[in-house]
């Protein structure tokens, strides 16, 4: 359903961030992983239309969306949860959820979306999405907005960051529910083994290139092996 063909991205200063990425996503739950700075967030921004590729094409359900704006892509079924959620002065959680829904929604509806991400709805619904919310709270609201939209493609950029271990179990549940309820595709950028573990496929990005793409049984042993090796070397030192 989502396809990138030979996508490259350079910054204005000419720094190459992604090189010739070709990727066809037809599974419903795909995880993207790779070292920090490898280009994962850049890839997500290219999909959402925040960045324009220097070369290459992006297709959604066979339609070339490369030239579409952020808003057009959103209307065509792409949602994107930021790695670093944005704060707004004066805009409340309810306002944001209504905007995500694209219509006025009832308080009880808004609340059910918040409860799903583990926020006690009545404490949050009228809060401003500003500096008074913690990073973890903002991340959950970010996820709730994607849930409200329920689009055919949902991209999450490190949704687990800033969320404590106890909540992490619930987070996994959120994605499971989303997987079962929507008929869309979920693309999650993550370092978490447990998220990789429930993915249909895993994409590994390193140095701006796709270095591996396959099922978890194909990918995980190598990935974990590399990590285990590191741990072992550290202990040996």
């Amino acid at each position: 359903m989502l396809e990138l063909k030979n996508v490259s991205y350079q910054t204005e200063e000419g720094k190459e961030i992604l090189r010739n990425v070709s990727l066809k996503i037809d599974d419903r739950f795909v995880a993207v992983t790779g070292p920090n700075g490898s280009g994962k967030s850049t890839l997500a921004k290219l999909i959402a239309g925040i960045y324009q590729p220097t070369s290459g094409k992006i297709y959604l359900d066979g339609v070339d969306i490369t030239g579409m704006s952020i808003s057009e892509r959103a209307k065509n079924g792409i949602s994107f949860a930021f790695q670093q959620p944005v704060r707004f002065k004066g805009i409340t959680v309810k306002d944001l959820i209504s905007m995500a829904a694209g219509k006025k929604i009832s308080v009880s509806e808004a609340c059910s979306y918040l409860s799903e991400v583990g926020l006690c709805a009545k404490d949050y619904i009228n809060r401003e999405v500003d500096g008074s919310l913690s990073g973890g709270e903002l991340k959950r609201i970010e996820i709730a907005m994607i849930n409200v939209r329920g689009t055919k493609l949902s991209v999450f950029d490190e949704p687990e960051a800033g969320i404590d271990l106890w909540s992490f179990n619930n987070l996994i549940k959120v994605f499971r529910t989303m997987y079962e309820r929507t008929h869309g595709t979920i693309l999650i950028i993550s370092h978490q083994e447990r998220i990789l573990d429930i993915a249909d496929k895993i994409v590994v990005i390193a140095g701006g290139e796709v270095t591996a793409y396959g099922t978890k049984s194909e990918i995980l042993p190598d990935l974990l092996g590399a990590q285990a090796g590191c741990r072992f070397t550290k202990e040996a030192e």
Binding site: I70, V86, M99, M145, R149
Partner: peptide, 12 residues
């Protein structure tokens, strides 16, 4: 980034 966030929700 505020404009971008709201545009990813489908707003112009």
């Amino acid at each position: 980034e505020q404009l971008i966030k709201l545009m990813t929700l489908g707003l112009s």
